[in-house]
Design a protein around this nucleic acid. Structure first.
Lengths: 340, 340
DNA sequence: GAAATAAATGTTAGCGCTAACATATTCAAA
DNA sequence: TTTGAATATGTTAGCGCTAACATTTATTTC
């Protein structure tokens, strides 16, 4: 294993000169620099990031904690993929690698979102769809740990986050459905303890109130953000023998399940039931009919989160930053126009 | 920042005793152990993995290099997702985090697949769909770097890999199509420099030869593994005004593109043209008609790769291991039975 | 109860690197 | 020249941790 000292010996200088060349710090004569660089090349020297990190407190690594990767898949993989690709681009630009936490998640046991930070001395963390215990939120705030949360947030802590305007988005969706003539709207909820699932449900209640629609409890279905959950919900809905004209789903995965099961149940979409999704994952484009959905700008959200994180990493003064992204309606073929 | 020494002071012992407790190494009196554990808890001590790694050469981290994450998306994200989730499960079980390389990929410049290993002192690397330069392959072999390659391989080096039996799989697909009565088969190729794309094409030639079919050059189309590539290919095929009865695509992404574009072109699938995919990504289930495809057991392949890697990490003697997974035909609705 | 053994704890050195200070060399201005 | 600054290089210490050896204390054996 090649160390700095060996490079130094080869180049006929002291090891600190090698360090200077590598980090471009301090003055080094051009001729010496070249000699060192050549030695580095010849010996195939790579600086050891452990030794380096140990006293510079800089490891050029961003930690990422994703709920999916903890065995809980809230949105379907596509969702995280697009976020990741946004995050990755900014990490590349900043020469940071990405470290993914792989703690086991036990039901009922508090997940340690900060372990990665304390143990690995990473420069900052991005948390996607987390469910952070109060005590850890406080720690992040108090210790000014560089951190950006995506797809969840707390109003009680000065922690930066990136999110979509979920409530407003459901309002837009509802307005669209209303405009298409729908008056009997059903809603397929996401998991209860998720902040955004709550916001989406709240948005639905807004729609009901705003347009003075009937709020039928039977049409508000429990879901869990999975395809299977969507299938279950549709079966339940059909069994009740009283369909709404449209079912608005809290995410696309469930909408896919609803559509697949509708086929089995002999329901035609959108003729017998209109379906609308939420998220805008890739698969929505390949369904027949094409799923109408609300698209979150996920790549952009990932980019924003990473940029915000690097700002925190590079600037000493901690400022909370919040970026709420608008959600866009992607018109497909799964919503019938019953207005005309 | 809490160090081992501070914990030691609190517990009234020397720092090495703390180290012993943490690593469960050497003898420590039960009473002392408890005192130390309590101090750890009180002070919220986390062992610093940098200091630890620096002399133990163990950082409990697996490096992962994925072609997608390098800006080149060969299979579509779903493919990598499933692999990752397999890998992740095994990493969790072995308490290893996953470090993702984020080097920029410049066209024409050799990607350094080993940088992560040399710099970060990670315990091993999994490379997905890589395109490793000869010199680096040699390095892996000579230095016995713990490494498993997924979805690519070289026969000239004793490096462990996991792959699907691509050639055989295309043979199976071809046999199936033949049995369904298809005699005019087209093939949509993947990118040329990819080993598996080559194997799949070779499989197609096997099929042609085996069943004594006409080999029409017009029916062998250039593709690039993307949805857009699929669309382009179908447009080209239609323009030629001489359709095969079935188009076998080298991956699902392209098949999705073919199906989407066929809709635009007024072609009915499978009535006017049968389509078959390859990979078995999730989206294939949501198309209408459901895409018939060859499914690689991706999660299992990820599991196998990770397990093989940990075996290399834990055992000193290096043994090349190769695991070829069978590919399964997933019958959908996109292939017409023209036999009857 | 002395010697041999095992268990429990401590001391020293060093992993590869950078920060901070120290020294040597060059160069320009008086 | 002399001097002071700028440039170039080197020395020492220490980041937090573990390995290897050293020492102390408890336990066994005859």
């Amino acid at each position: 294993m090649v160390t700095q000292s060996e490079v130094a010996k080869r180049a006929g200088v002291s090891f600190i000169t090698v360090s200077r060349v590598i980090n471009n710090k301090g003055n080094v004569k051009e001729e010496t620099r070249e000699r060192v660089l050549e030695a580095i090349k010849e010996l195939k020297y790579y600086p050891n990031s452990l030794g380096r990190g140990l006293n510079s407190n800089k490891v050029n690594t961003v930690g990422i904690v994703i709920a999916t990767l903890m065995g809980v898949n809230i949105h379907g993989n596509q969702f995280y993929n697009e976020l990741m690709s946004g995050i990755e681009g900014i990490c590349i630009r900043n020469s940071h690698d990405m470290l993914i936490s792989t703690q086991k998640k036990y039901p009922g046991v508090e997940y340690d979102y900060l372990k990665l930070y304390y143990e690995r001395k990473i420069d900052g963390i991005i948390m996607v769809s987390p469910n952070i215990p109060e005590s850890q939120l406080r720690q992040i705030e108090e210790e000014r740990i560089p951190c950006v949360i995506i797809d969840d947030h707390s109003d009680e802590h000065r922690i930066s986050y990136v999110d979509a305007d979920n409530r407003e988005a459901v309002n837009l969706a509802g307005d669209y459905l209303f405009q298409k003539g729908h008056r009997k709207m059903g809603f397929l909820k996401g998991v209860e303890n998720n902040r955004n699932a709550q916001d989406r449900l709240a948005g639905f209640y807004d729609v009901i109130a705003k347009h003075n629609l009937d709020l039928k409890e039977d049409w508000i279905l429990e879901g869990d953000f999975t395809v299977e959950g969507g299938r279950d919900a549709l079966r339940k809905l059909v069994a009740q023998n009283n369909l709404p004209t449209v079912l608005l789903c809290a995410n696309d995965q469930m909408a896919l399940g609803v559509m697949a099961e509708a086929k089995n149940a002999g329901l035609k979409i959108p003729e017998d039931l209109s379906v609308m999704g939420f998220d805008g994952i890739e698969a929505h484009r390949y369904t027949t009919p094409i799923l109408t959905t609300m698209r979150q700008p996920l790549v952009e959200m990932g980019v924003a989160a990473a940029e915000m994180l690097f700002e925190q990493i590079n600037n000493t003064d901690y400022v909370q930053e919040i970026r709420i992204f608008p959600v866009e309606l992607i018109s497909g073929e799964s919503v019938k126009d019953v207005a005309g």
